[in-house]
Each structure stands twice: as structure tokens, then as C-alpha cells.
């Protein structure tokens, strides 16, 4: 008669608990990965609403803070930038020149959002390039997280009068005419 060891397994309740824990953990990791990789905004989607507190000295219609949804009916150009970003330096003057073209009519609003920048450096950058359109810090990186901006700076979002995203520009603008072409198309809609 041969003899072999009998393996006394882990109790059923412990097995269930272990599997539930592993499954729960995998679900959490999976959800996190899906969330991290899914683009939260795309062309055609409604631009997520946010509030922006402007840097000292900047106002929009006399207010030092604004809400994106209050700008419905206007074309909005949202530019994410940082003082440490060299391509942002390249396009700073171009954006300012474009803003000066559209500012008098009041149909287009430019918004600059400083991303993961320090306040003194942001202010120095704005002063250096003579930026006059409303600018503010992305406090708590809340705005950039809404727009799933993890690719870098600069990035610019063009929002139509209906509040939907019409164009996303990754990287700097080459010329004022490039910006003009995009805005004029949106104004004509």
C-alpha cells in the first residue's frame, strides 16, 4: 500500500478573501490605467468648464477671475505654457500679436494658463514678452488634468462659440497667419 502526503489546503473563506483582494486590486490598477490613457477631451467634445484666477494686473472685463462657461458665444483660445519651455518662448510674441488683432472686436478671448510654473517665473515671462491677454496659474493643476494635458507645453485649444473644442494645437505656432486661419474659420461658423 503506497502512502502519500495529503495536502490540507487553505480554508475556503481564506481562498475567497485572497481572490477577492487580488481581483479588487487588479480592477483598481486597470481603472487607473484606463483613466490615465483615455484622452479626456478631443475635437468635437464639450470643453470642460473651469475657473481661472488671473495673475495680478490681469483682468477680463474688469474681473480678476473668470469661468470658461461664462465665455459661451465667443471663440476662446486656451494656451497652456510654462516659463521654462523654450517653444513657449518662440510662440509668445505670435500669440500676443494675434490677440491684438482680435481684441478690439471682442468676439475672441485668449487665455494663457501657466502649467507647473512658479509664480515669479511666470510673471517674469509675461513681462518679458509683453503679454497682455488674460493669464493665470493652473492652481492645483486642476485645469490641465481636465484637459488631460500630459503631453507637454505648449498646447493650445480652440473653442467655438458653442463651447465645443474645434482644434487642438500641439506645439508652438509658426506664424500669426496660422492662428488667424483657425480663428477666422471659427468666427465664420
Amino acid at each position: 500500500m503506497s502512502v502519500q502526503q495529503q495536502k490540507q489546503g487553505v480554508p475556503l473563506w481564506a481562498q475567497i478573501l485572497i481572490w477577492l483582494s487580488i481581483t479588487g486590486l487588479l480592477v483598481l490598477v486597470g481603472l487607473g490605467l484606463i483613466r490615465a490613457q483615455r484622452p479626456m477631451v478631443s475635437v468635437g467634445s464639450l470643453a470642460p468648464d473651469f475657473s481661472l484666477t488671473l495673475f495680478d494686473g490681469y483682468t477680463l472685463d474688469g474681473a480678476s477671475s473668470l469661468k470658461l462657461s461664462d465665455l459661451r458665444g465667443k471663440v476662446v483660445v486656451i494656451n497652456f505654457w510654462a516659463s521654462w519651455c523654450k517653444p513657449c518662448e518662440q510662440e509668445a510674441a505670435t500669440l500676443e500679436a494675434a490677440w491684438r488683432l482680435y481684441q478690439p472686436a471682442g468676439e475672441v478671448v485668449f487665455l494663457g494658463i501657466a502649467w507647473t510654473d512658479t509664480e515669479p517665473k511666470s510673471k517674469a515671462f509675461l513681462k518679458r514678452f509683453g503679454i497682455t491677454y488674460p493669464n493665470g496659474p493652473d492652481l492645483g493643476t486642476r485645469i490641465s488634468q481636465l484637459y488631460n494635458r500630459n503631453l507637454g507645453v505648449p498646447e493650445t485649444y480652440f473653442i467655438g462659440r458653442d463651447g465645443t473644442i474645434k482644434h487642438i494645437q500641439i506645439g508652438p505656432f509658426a506664424s500669426v497667419s496660422q492662428i488667424q486661419a483657425l480663428i477666422d474659420r471659427l468666427l465664420a461658423e
Binding site: 500500500m1 503506497s2 502512502v3 502519500q4 502526503q5 495529503q6 495536502k7 490540507q8 487553505v10 481564506a14 478573501l17 485572497i18 483582494s21 486590486l25
Partner: peptide, 26 residues
């Protein structure tokens, strides 16, 4: 929690390993 759970399973497995039961094969 996972470490405690793992330690519990390990202790159980080692205990069973040290004091095995006997079964008839077949």
C-alpha cells in the same frame, strides 16, 4: 493587509507541510 494575508497563508502552508496527513493512493 496583503502582507498579513500572505504571512497567514504561508504559516498555514508551512504548518501543513511539517505535519502531513496520510492518504492511500488510487
Amino acid at each position: 493587509v496583503l502582507i498579513a494575508l500572505g504571512a497567514f497563508v504561508l504559516v498555514r502552508a508551512l504548518r501543513d507541510w511539517v505535519k502531513p496527513g496520510v492518504t492511500e493512493a488510487g
